[in-house]
Design a protein around this nucleic acid. Structure first.
Lengths: 364, 364
DNA sequence: CTGAAAGCGCTAACAT
DNA sequence: ATGTTAGCGCTTTCAG
């Protein structure tokens, strides 16, 4: 690791010019086999690895795609954690009374990332990831923008003004939010339609019974669309959406519990449609404790398709986001855009999977 | 997005030299306020974002850290997925008989990544991620090596020879594997000690009862260390480790089920210590079906601390990897190495959390 | 406090 | 088939 070898070093050692070294690396067939071997030997001997910066500068493209997520993570204010301090740490600690598990349960990032990385690889790119923080001076997303050929951002994770500015430099695709008539490419899912279908399913189960809605935060476009799906289906079935009992949550399990408590106290509806799985699970926690039976006394549905939804009893009916596909699609769209910078903006809508499980099926 | 503005454009517009533009961006206080304003105005007007490649080349550092994971993902052979094809896709599909859920359950990546990203940001870096694939020609990790200042790799995800070569160019830290006397920095966890402690706990519960071990794949150093923890504790308690009933699994839930079936058939031990949570859960699935009660008939423990372990009933005793901290620690170690290239190699050992839950507590 | 100029390591014409 | 050379966009002495 002394000081990294460069093309010049390799060229010297192989007794050729730097152009030849470059050729061996980029179009080997354009170089006579003997020369090629000599160069490759030198490369191996020196442990030469080309500088991405120099390549990027010369080629005017980096070969890197950026994926940017908002930082809905409490880890922000994590303690400084000084691992280098020599303070003796015990090899383990025993915990018998746990707090709320620190699981971020944001599988979202995990899966989208895997999809994006896979597809990026297939297309010959590598992936850079950033998580949003609001530091006035140092914006991660801007940091990234200068180093990548294209950027994928989760909807609403970047202020419009900033996004507009970055888009002047590199193509941007927006993930998973409603297209807002902007000039970006979008990859999104059919929230409204799928939630409508799920609502029709629930209606088919409860007949005239009451349907309550456990809503997400008011400022979430996702939450909004999910309600739109429900209300549209309700209206189509001749019900008045305005008459629906709506409990406002914030997508957390705790808020689901609070909603569950209110329902258990005020009287449970025939069905509870929640805007996400976590809240649905929270409500089910409470129901279980209060002796309210699911699905006998109340049907429950969620949204997202998190793993926990399959593990509770009864298993939770939900709508699964095709997260891996979202990531892959975003990369494909970005790659296309890189090739055709002037094609009209494209919105790709991925289908959702409605997973019908016990929690939403009236026992016969 | 016409063509990205450069320092020259900004300089022209502001009526200064490119050196001044550069200064405004890097050490604003070195520039007279009026000039600075003029430059910043130009920057804003042009939507200027500095090129990471050019910076990297000039500064001889990229400001990027790489995180590399092995690709134990079935997603590799995922279908081509052509999102751009205009084929009409339905907005949703209804699924009532699910296959095995496609959850990658690799929370590992997720959390380590979050930790690494957080710390990278704190230290002024951005993060690049790569997932290993074995393509003879195009190695992701080498792709990354040329673009980052330092590399974090998961133990055994990169062949020794390759790693050695990359390490000649940039510092490397190895995550979560046993240090092997190499020259890299390591960040790892106290597998052996924690598993030993857990074993002692189990011993305290079962007295003279039989303890069986549900092992992981033979080629996993983690699996190996976990067994080492168990066998050492057993030996210390006067038992012969060689006499332990060992069932070999491969870390999957399915393999846990198979082991559970074998045990249910041949007779269950007083306690089953599994090398990871998934297998423990698989065994518990079977036990439940077979009428074998946990913890009444058999105690069960896992390893990893995945979320599902808290959701089953009874909740599964397990050992939680400090994954976020692993990521953070890796970045810290890397940052230190960047500052002190010649410091001796460092191995940091992070403590584990033993989570005692119902599955391992003899009912009184 | 500001400008001129020399690289940083590589690619891609253009020559030979 | 190989070498020469002119950038790519930025940072950073070194002068002024």
């Amino acid at each position: 690791m002394s000081k990294a070898a460069t093309v010049y070093d390799v060229a010297d050692r192989a007794g050729v010019s730097i152009a030849t070294v470059s050729r061996v690396l980029r179009s080997p067939e354009a170089v006579r086999p003997v020369t090629r071997e000599r160069v490759l030997d030198a490369v191996a001997a020196l442990g030469y690895v080309p500088s991405g910066s120099a390549r990027g500068l010369a080629e005017r493209r980096t070969g890197v795609l950026g994926l940017y997520f908002p930082g809905f993570d409490a880890a922000e204010d994590a303690p400084p954690l000084d691992v280098l301090s020599a303070a003796a740490r015990p090899p383990f600690t025993v915990v018998s009374d746990e707090q709320d598990a620190p699981h971020s349960s944001m599988l979202f990032l995990d899966e989208v990332l895997r999809g994006a990385e896979l597809e990026a690889w297939k297309q010959g790119f590598v992936l850079m990831v950033g998580v949003g923080r609001d530091d006035p001076d140092r914006s991660t997303v801007r940091d990234m923008a200068g180093r990548v050929d294209g950027l994928m951002v989760l909807a609403r994770s970047v202020p419009d003004a900033v996004l507009a500015r970055l888009a002047r430099r590199i193509p941007v695709v927006v993930l998973s939010g409603p297209p807002r008539g902007d000039a970006y490419d979008h990859v999104t899912v059919s929230n409204v339609e799928a939630m409508g279908e799920l609502t029709r399913h629930v209606l088919s189960q409860v007949g005239e019974g009451e349907i309550a809605f456990l809503a997400g935060p008011a400022d979430s476009p996702d939450a909004e669309q999910r309600w739109e799906g429900v209300s549209t289906a309700l209206a189509a079935a001749g019900r008045d959406p305005a008459a629906v009992r709506i409990l406002r949550g914030d997508f957390t399990r705790a808020s689901g519990r609070r909603a569950g408590e209110r329902l258990a106290r005020d009287g449970v509806p025939a069905a509870l449609i929640a805007a996400n799985d976590q809240m649905a699970l929270g409500a089910m926690d409470v129901f279980r404790g209060a002796g309210v039976r699911v699905p006998d006394d109340v049907l429950v549905t969620g949204f997202d398709g998190i793993e926990a939804a399959t593990l509770v009893s009864p298993p939770l009916t939900t709508i699964r986001q095709p997260m891996i596909e979202l990531g892959r699609a975003a990369v494909q769209v970005l790659a296309r855009r890189l090739e055709q910078p002037d094609a009209p903006p494209l919105t790709t809508r991925l289908p959702l999977q409605i997973l019908l499980r016990e929690s939403s099926t009236r026992p016969s």
